[in-house]
Amino acid sequence: MPDKNLQLDGNGKLLHFLSIEGLNQPILTEILDTAESFTSITERNVKKVPILRGKTVANLFFEPSTRTRSTFELAAQRLSADILNLNVNTSATTKGESLLDTLRNLEAMQIDMFVIRHQDSGSAHFFAQHVSPGVSVLNAGDGQHEHPTQAMLDMFTIRHFKKDFSQLRVAIVGDILHSRVARSQIHALNLLNTAEVRVIAPRTLLPVETEALGVSIYNNLEDGLKDVDVIIMLRLQKERMRGALLPSEKEYFRLYGLSQERLKCAKPDAIVMHPGPANRGVEIESSVMDGSQSVILNQVSFGISVRMAIMSMIVGQSGLRGDES
């Protein structure tokens, strides 16, 4: 992987937000605390603060997205930024323009912050290496590498409902192999000192280096869900499947789908999360998704505050060292 310290300056201040790997526990906690203070803004008459006034944010999505793109857009707007949405599938890159040329052209439009989703792992790092000083890059998902803002909003959701990470058992279920979300979540959960992180998946959907991530591995859903506080279901990424990793969707649901019955293996007050978009009836039963233990829609709302927090921390100095006057 490229230089991880690209995201922090010499004083530990956030310059870009590319991956959870390479960050530290104080920064993650500061993001969660800052996001907390943004949640009240949505209850006001004017749901805007002037932090990014005069700045321009470009949403550069090389892959389709609804939730991530729109919550990044709302987050930037609530911070008073101007926002440019580019669906690159339908623009110049399909006409043969290189990534770097697209970047240079956008920089010529005085963009201050790029939010990038791209199908190649490491693309956000690549952008961050090539932008001019003072321009920031936020990773909105790069290939099978990381999706760090999703992981942070998941951490926010877990902290909101369950408080202390050091007391928690968290299970991540499903397609770990193709999931950038899972990779970011595992790093974040470990940095925040979660008592136990489990991954539950068929062997064919586990990456080879899973053990090295510091998690316990389960191939059986019932065993893995026993006594957990948090269940994170992952989407079965049909579009990323190459070759026959699975017999069929029906078979997958039979073995790894979260049903009401299976949910009972977890603690009675366990919360159910899903980064979306969910395949109802494939990885999660509809009644669980809409059930009382599901916090899936809370995740979406929290996503706005968390993305506001990360954007404002990049623009401002770290609040932990700020001097009140």
Binding site: E30, T34, E36, S37, S40, M313, G316, G319, G322
Partner: peptide
């Protein structure tokens, strides 16, 4: 703001 940053430890407005 760009020089001082946020103070997440200070209570939010109410």
């Amino acid at each position: 703001f760009t020089k001082k940053g946020l103070h997440p430890t200070v209570s939010p407005s109410s």
